[in-house]
Amino acid sequence: MPHPVVITATPTLFHQSLDLNETGIREHLTWLKESGVDAIFSAGTTGEFPTLSDAEKLTVLDLSLEIFGPERTYFHVGAPSAKQAGELAAESVRRGARKLAAVTPYYQSAPEAETLSYYEHVAKEAEGAELFAYLFEARTSTQSNPTVLASLAKADLAGVKISGESDETVAQYLKHRPADFSVFSGNDVSFEWFSSAGGDGIISGVSSVYPEPFVALRDALIAGNSEAVREAQRNVERAVSAVNAGSLTHLKAGVSARGFAGGPVRSAVAPTGDADRSSITALAAEFAAA
């Protein structure tokens, strides 16, 4: 069985003007690479993709490929329509992307047949790259049952990312996975359980601030060191709690606490309070000193 991997879902960093902070993004990505994460998932939910123009997304892609390369960059191209997602996928492949992800159609709830048609179109436009479905019913309103994985595999998709579901539901997806079909989880705190259940790895926004416990847990799982697994899992849980389970403003505060230009968010979400900022900074200092 392949080793579990840590794929970091990266926030998109902005200047106070809300323009892209390309220098900040490059510096943060370089640090993540040096921290030992396996790959990145850019321009996704953590990356505030609904607030980005396609031109901005492609700039994020170029920076991601510059630092992590095509085999370690999962780039998100999902959109409400197959036309939009397909156009972005085709241009991404032209620029060198080889691993793409697309969230299900969103805003309008898509039936399964239409969802599959969407993925078939995007996969065709993404020829030359692997395509992964991104299932997140809580954010998209599009429902996907575990049995859909077989149809996604037949549509030439390479795997799936599942977010916003309970461990019990994710276990059903794992039960229905086709052969040679990757299943990733977006539930940071469940990394230990998910890996032991046969999942391929975590796609973690929290690791953009605290890569250390996720890398430690991955290494402990690979080594079969149960004591180190327990300690690392406890630290993963502390990290998830510190950033309020991946709140955008908490993650940006965390990026700042690690010494980078976290900057503001574009999304209309609640700010981070002073007490939470203090906790985020204290945990960052603890992990940095360990």
Rank of each mutant, 00 (worst) to 15 (best):
Asp167His: 04
Val265Asn: 12
Ala138Asn: 14
Val122Gly: 01
Ala197Trp: 12
Glu91Asn: 10
Ile202His: 00
Glu127Ser: 06
Thr281Asn: 09
Glu27Val: 00
Asp188Met: 03
Ser226Leu: 12
Lys99Cys: 05
Glu112Phe: 09
Ala253Glu: 10
Leu61Ala: 11
Lys154Phe: 00
Ala171Asn: 08
Glu120Ala: 13
Arg258Ile: 14
Ser17Lys: 05
Thr140Glu: 12
Ile67Asn: 13
Ser81Tyr: 02
Asn235His: 10
Ser117Leu: 13
Gln84His: 06
Ala138Val: 12
Ser204Lys: 01
Pro271Trp: 02
Glu168His: 05
Lys33Thr: 01
Ala290Tyr: 01
Lys161Met: 12
Gly263Glu: 13
Val6Leu: 03
Phe75Ala: 04
Thr249Pro: 02
Thr23Ile: 14
Asp274Pro: 03
Ala102Val: 02
Val240Lys: 01
Ser17Tyr: 06
Phe68Glu: 13
Leu116Ser: 07
Ala285Arg: 15
Leu18Ala: 14
Ser117Gly: 10
Leu174His: 07
Gly273Trp: 00
Ser163His: 04
Glu120Trp: 04
Phe214Asp: 07
Ala239Tyr: 03
Pro178His: 08
Leu248Lys: 10
Ser17Ile: 07
Thr45Asp: 10
Lys83Asp: 11
Ala129Ser: 11
Ala171Arg: 12
Ser151His: 11
Gly186Gln: 08
Pro146Lys: 01
Arg26Ile: 12
Phe260Trp: 07
Val206Trp: 02
Thr23Leu: 15
His3Tyr: 01
Arg234Glu: 15
Glu71Met: 06
Ile202Val: 13
Glu237Leu: 08
Ser196Lys: 15
Glu137Gly: 04
Ser109Phe: 02
Asn225Met: 06
Ala85Arg: 00
Ser92Ala: 15
Asp156Val: 00
Phe260His: 15
Arg277Gly: 11
His15Glu: 15
Pro70Ser: 12
Ile222His: 02
Leu157Arg: 06
Asp156Gly: 03
Glu71Ile: 00
Thr23Ser: 14
Asp188Ala: 03
Asn187Ile: 01
Ile40Tyr: 04
Ala43Trp: 04
Thr23Gln: 15
Glu27Leu: 09
Gln172Leu: 10
Gly199Val: 04
Arg234Thr: 11
Leu65Gln: 15
Ala289Cys: 10
Thr73Lys: 06
Ile202Asn: 02
His121Thr: 13
Ser35Ile: 00
Gly69Leu: 09
Leu149Thr: 11
Ala220Lys: 09
Phe68Pro: 12
Arg94Ile: 00
Pro11Trp: 13
Asp19Lys: 11
Asp219Phe: 01
Arg139Gln: 14
Glu192Asn: 08
Arg277Asn: 06
Ala79Trp: 00
Asp219Thr: 02
Gly246Tyr: 02
Thr10Trp: 09
Val77Pro: 03
Ile222Lys: 09
Lys83Tyr: 07
Thr104Val: 15
Phe68Ser: 13
Tyr74Leu: 15
Gly164Leu: 05
Ser144Glu: 13
Val93Asn: 03
Ile222Val: 14
Asp54Gly: 03
Ala197Cys: 08
Arg94Tyr: 03
Ala138Lys: 14
Ala242Ile: 02
His28Ser: 07
Gly205Phe: 03
Tyr74Pro: 00
Ser279Ile: 05
Arg72Val: 04
Val77Tyr: 02
Gly78Pro: 08
Ser151Cys: 00
Thr147Trp: 11
Phe14Tyr: 15
Ala123His: 05
